[in-house]
Amino acid sequence: MKQWIQHSERPTRAGFGEGVLEAGILNNEVVALGGDITSSVGLDLFAKAFPDRFFSLGIAEQNAIAVAAGLALGGKIPVFSTYGVFAAIRAADQIRVSLCYNRLHAIIGGAHAGISVGPDGATHQALEDIAIMTSFPNMCVLSPCDATQARLAVLAALGYTAGPVYIRFGREAVADFTTPELPFEIGKAQVMNYGADITVIATGHMVWEAIQSAVTLRNQGLSVRVINMHSLKPLDEDIIIKAAKETRRIVTIEEHQMIGGLGSLVASLTARNFPVPVFSMGINDHFGESGQAAELLLKYGLTADHITRKILSICK
């Protein structure tokens, strides 16, 4: 089993910000749009480095997304980031029509994704963004597992010119455990641990939890395959079908509603191709609430221990 070692603890939004800065250095056409919460969503690095290519648009997400479409029409590569609830949900029609229908290349950062946003509570915890964003034609949806990968996701999005890219990331400092050398390819998920008894497909912060669970279960004689589904659309169908055939059971886990999220994507794909039981772990048709991130993850059953118990109950 590959050993994943936590080399630091950082929020994924920090990696997003580094990636945007780097994209700006690599490509002069990259411009960024601010929605008032610039430093909170990681755009302050770019804004400081490239003040002439940063445009403040205030608290007006619908306008910002369609402005991004105009910039893309004019040959720019716009990056707009705000909390996922406002980007993916308030401005959904602008994303659908002005960006997706027009196949315009723009990068949208969906910050504060998941229940681990913590004390801000339900209005600020994006738990439906995957459902909405993956349903739009021409949309690409990424959900990196840590800060290192969030940076790579931005750079991959820079090269993905077929349409808009939505990148989802979190607020809290979490384990940073991947390395910059680990390739990040849109549409190609990563097997973080090879196993034959059952597969856990995780996305975002939940990948680290899944890896921890796999370590625990190995000591109890279970071999758990862990897949990091960082690319939700295009979805790596082959890796899922292969896992279904080889391990016959799949657990999915995400900081998102079970309706329309990773669990739904995996269940419908396997149902169409190679039906196996899919056990979804996520938010069960419920709004979030205030609390510390760790308390909320515990309450909503989104920790390594919960995965371990789920797998033991399935494999007993």
């Binding site: 445009f55 619908q62 369609a66 402005v67 004019g74 720019k76 029509v97």
Partner: peptide, 25 residues
């Protein structure tokens, strides 16, 4: 056709983005 459209209230924003891109260039 410069832009696919039909959902009201988006064109002026797109125009803003386009005008910014022209100014940069």
């Amino acid at each position: 056709i410069e832009l696919s459209s039909g959902s009201l209230g988006q064109g002026l924003s797109v125009g803003v983005g386009l005008a910014i891109s022209k100014r940069i260039n």
